[in-house]
Computed example of a mutant assay.
Amino acid sequence: MDDLEPIRFDTKIAVLLHEDLEPWQALNVTAFLISGIASADPELIGEPYEDADGQTYLPLIRQPVVVLSGDSERLTTTHGKLLARGMAIAVYTRDMFATGNDRDNRAAVRKVATADLDLVGIAVRGARNAVDKSFKGAALHR
């Protein structure tokens, strides 16, 4: 394989954020959601980086992440489509902004029924076609 040949991915990573989030919230939610995606598959993490002086840096996710936005209805609809397809999803609910640790975050999600989750962010990595169909109608985040 030629090292200059374009790299194609048969999977896609997508994040859908609620359109009403403050910029700091959108960045925070995205970071949390992507940590869930990265933890689900160790092969998703690339090799460490190194600059021309030999200084090394931590490895990053191997493939691009598309970040989209939508309203509550779009988040609920997309969440339902992902669940119906049996896809593993990372979620962030509005209640999690009031917590300060993983234990309380998990408790905030656990106390609410699936249909009643106040979603402000979801993320998934899956087959490109399934991700595209699930996120259809969501706009690129600005």
Rank of each mutant, 00 (worst) to 15 (best):
G80W: 12
D53F: 11
A88N: 12
D51L: 01
L68M: 15
A139D: 11
L27M: 10
V65P: 01
T99P: 01
F9V: 02
V131Y: 06
T93Q: 03
G46W: 04
I89V: 15
G70D: 12
A108M: 05
D51V: 07
S39K: 09
R110T: 06
N105R: 11
R74Q: 15
V131R: 13
L21C: 04
A14C: 10
Y49N: 06
Q55G: 01
D95Y: 03
M96R: 01
R103S: 14
A98W: 01
G100T: 07
N101Y: 06
V109L: 10
V120R: 02
I13P: 06
G80D: 08
D3C: 07
L75H: 09
T78V: 05
L33E: 09
G54F: 12
D132N: 11
T78I: 07
I45P: 00
I61M: 15
D10K: 07
H79K: 03
V112I: 15
A115F: 00
A139M: 05
M87S: 05
D116Q: 05
F9P: 07
D3L: 15
D132Q: 03
L21A: 01
D118L: 00
T76D: 08
L27S: 15
G36S: 01
I37L: 09
A138Y: 03
R142W: 08
A113R: 14
L27E: 12
F97V: 00
F135A: 04
L33H: 00
I45C: 03
T99N: 08
L119R: 09
A14W: 03
A127R: 12
F9T: 03
A108C: 11
D118F: 02
T93E: 02
R85P: 02
V66E: 05
N105P: 01
T114F: 09
